[in-house]
Design a protein around this nucleic acid. Structure first.
Lengths: 185, 185
DNA sequence: CCGTAAGCGGACTATGTCGTCCGTTTTCCA
DNA sequence: TGGAAAACGGACGACATAGTCCGCTTACGG
């Protein structure tokens, strides 16, 4: 667990790699090669593998960071009074993240079983479940859905909208899903 | 265009290849290798490439066949009196096909631009649009959706349910999407 | 300022994939 | 039944990718 601090150049390169990976995953999904990530980061690809034993570890690191962002959204939503509005607010924020980041859902499902992601996801789901339960009690969300269901439905719908001619298509899809979840404005 | 009929053994092998491909795509998606398809068909992989110049052509052939099945479903639905019920009926039939066949949506989006698939899809969409328009006039489906939207929403939702512990999860997802589309039972 | 350990990255290996080639086998018709 | 055309499939090539190795370079504490 105790790790000696990285040398300054190594630390800089690590950050560059993470940034480059996040950018490329967002633009083109998790399929981009490690070579390309390394190239954008301005390092050799061996440098990537020195920090991350496998490509999946790199994806996990990037995805875990994003899950942190999602967690912040849920926490903000939980602070709202109106349970239904809180739920919708979170979904729209999460959706916007997915719409901007093609790799997010992909990484989520590809590395969901890896420890780092599994833990982050578990923590996130606890909060989302609170949000859902509250909304359900208020009659604003149907009874038979879980945090995973919401993530999947929103994530896949937006994934389906990617690559369409209409860059705003995902909003209509989210509206449909929200409506189906019983969360009508 | 005019093709001399295949030799008997070639015809038999062609069918075996199509069957094997359909099976494997259904089970594990379009990612399965041509080698594996050939193995299951009991032929060498060169035999596959003799009939289909590329893997995408093979996928297109399989997908086009499935689109035929979908077309039959729409036609049956169009014969129903109740517009809303007709729409729901079609969606459930299509969904069941997607649930059984993991490769269907994948092939759809991967080879949607290839002539064979594009044509089959265009024909199918004309019919689906009739179904939707009728349901919209009856107030049973929201105004802002097209055939492509329905295909995408249903296809992606079910894709998201694949691999879950619950083999019936997709039904709940379809229920949510149908509800969101404004098609409440 | 210098020695050492950490870090670097190009070259390499391993693997899996699509797609081609060509010598051999099989069909089928005259 | 015999021979030409069609079909077959194993061997091969080309390519992309993940991951390893090792000789060279760089940071940094004493």
């Amino acid at each position: 667990m105790s790790t000696t601090p990285l040398r300054a150049d190594a630390q800089r390169n690590l950050e560059r790699v993470l940034d480059a990976a996040a950018e490329l995953f967002a633009e083109r999904g998790c399929g981009v090669s490690v070579d390309e990530i390394a190239r954008r980061a301005g390092v050799g690809h061996a440098t990537v593998f020195r920090r991350f034993p496998s490509k999946d570890e790199l994806i996990s690191a990037v995805v875990s960071k994003q899950i942190g962002e999602l967690t912040a959204y849920v926490e903000a939503a939980l602070a709202e009074d109106d349970a239904g509005e809180a739920f919708r607010s979170f979904v729209w924020h999460a959706a916007e993240l997915h719409a901007r980041d093609r790799g997010l859902y992909e990484g989520f499902s590809r590395c969901g079983a890896m420890q780092e992601v599994a833990e982050a996801k578990a923590g996130l789901n606890v909060l989302i479940d609170q949000l859902i339960e509250r909304a359900q009690k208020a009659g604003a969300v149907r009874k038979d859905v879980s945090a995973d269901d919401v993530s999947t439905l929103v994530g896949t719908a937006i994934r389906g909208a990617h690559g369409s001619a209409d860059p705003e298509l995902w909003r209509r899809y989210v509206a449909v899903v929200l409506d189906g979840l019983g969360a009508r404005g």
